[in-house]
């Protein structure tokens, strides 16, 4: 039998190709373009090779920002994941309070980033803010615009307030999908509440938890708006996370080459960590 060849079918793929091109490929290539060249305006470019990458990777400023970013993301994950699981476990599984709890949990997620930043900025002001004023009147020396520790605490607490709900909602969905019979079976076996959590709830939540951790990692690793509005990266550079630093280099100093190289390194770091984490978590499932 003769096969008919019809190249016209390629046209059907065009919309997707165009979409991907405009959506991802062209913007990314612009960055790549700047990362390997030097420009002095007039649309004149000079080849620089890997100069910018070497410069960024050797710069202490980048190391510090990356270190701060790692520390911040680790703190966020260490607090938000266990807290999220704990809150999800203590939420009612049925009854009229379910919807109340869900709405309360969803509220912080609905507030725009810059509003959260502004809210916490005012809330934490040492002279007029409710939080700042109360802490100071209780005898704590708290001032997030001047002390690095206060600034860090405020940023972390703000993020926990804003995003723990996401972990809670995902875990809650995971918990609700466990059939009642599992709990009954464990009950008949005489399993302790800890054993029920460790051997039934946690394994059954594994997939949603993986997603939750990935989302929280990516989001917190790329955090920009909230600390920018709250502390502006200060005091000094103590809360200047990677993306804040990147914007400073790209738009503040207009060093497009190093900024582009830094963007690519930034992107690769996020990609690498996500890939390693996901592969490790899913290793058992693929066997």
């Amino acid at each position: 039998m003769r096969k008919t060849t019809n190249q016209k079918a390629w046209w059907l793929v065009t919309p997707v190709l165009l979409l991907v091109a405009f959506n991802a490929f062209i913007p990314l290539m612009t960055v790549v373009n700047y990362a390997f060249q030097e420009t002095f305006g007039n649309n004149q470019f000079f080849w620089e090779g890997t100069t910018w990458f070497e410069k960024v990777l050797r710069s202490e400023r980048f190391h510090d920002a990356l270190g701060r970013q790692m520390l911040f993301t680790s703190m966020i994950l260490v607090i938000e994941v266990p807290l999220g699981i704990a809150v999800a476990l203590s939420m009612p599984r049925k009854g009229p309070w379910v919807s109340v709890c869900l709405v309360l949990m969803a509220l912080p997620l609905l507030i725009p980033w810059n509003v959260v930043g502004a809210m916490w900025n005012i809330f934490a002001l040492p002279d007029i803010g409710l939080l700042g004023y109360s802490l100071n009147s209780m005898g704590f020396d708290y001032n997030f615009t001047r002390q690095p520790v206060s600034a860090w605490m405020t940023t972390v607490v703000m993020d926990v307030w804003h995003w723990t709900s996401l972990v809670v909602l995902l875990c809650y969905a995971g918990l609700c999908s466990i059939p009642d019979a599992y709990y009954q079976a464990a009950h008949i076996d005489g399993a302790s509440p800890w054993a029920v959590f460790r051997y039934i709830q946690l394994p059954k939540m594994k997939r949603v938890l993986t997603i939750a951790i990935l989302l929280r990692f990516m989001d917190s690793f790329m955090i920009y708006t909230e600390p920018f509005v709250l502390t502006g990266g200060g005091p000094g550079n103590t809360t200047t996370f990677l993306s804040i630093d990147l914007v400073k280099i790209a738009l503040g100093q207009f060093d497009l080459g190093p900024a582009a190289a830094m963007s690519l390194i930034y992107f690769l770091v996020v990609l690498l960590i996500c890939w390693v984490f996901y592969t490790v978590m899913m290793r058992n499932e693929e066997q």
Binding site: P179, A181, Y182, Q184, A185, H187, I188, D189, G190, Y199, I200, L202, P203, K204
Partner: peptide, 17 residues
């Protein structure tokens, strides 16, 4: 848990991990 009882369900219930 103090009675000598075992139960098997319609859904397949085992410890997943």
């Amino acid at each position: 848990q103090k009675r000598s009882v075992a139960m098997v369900y319609q859904a397949f219930i085992n410890y997943p991990s």
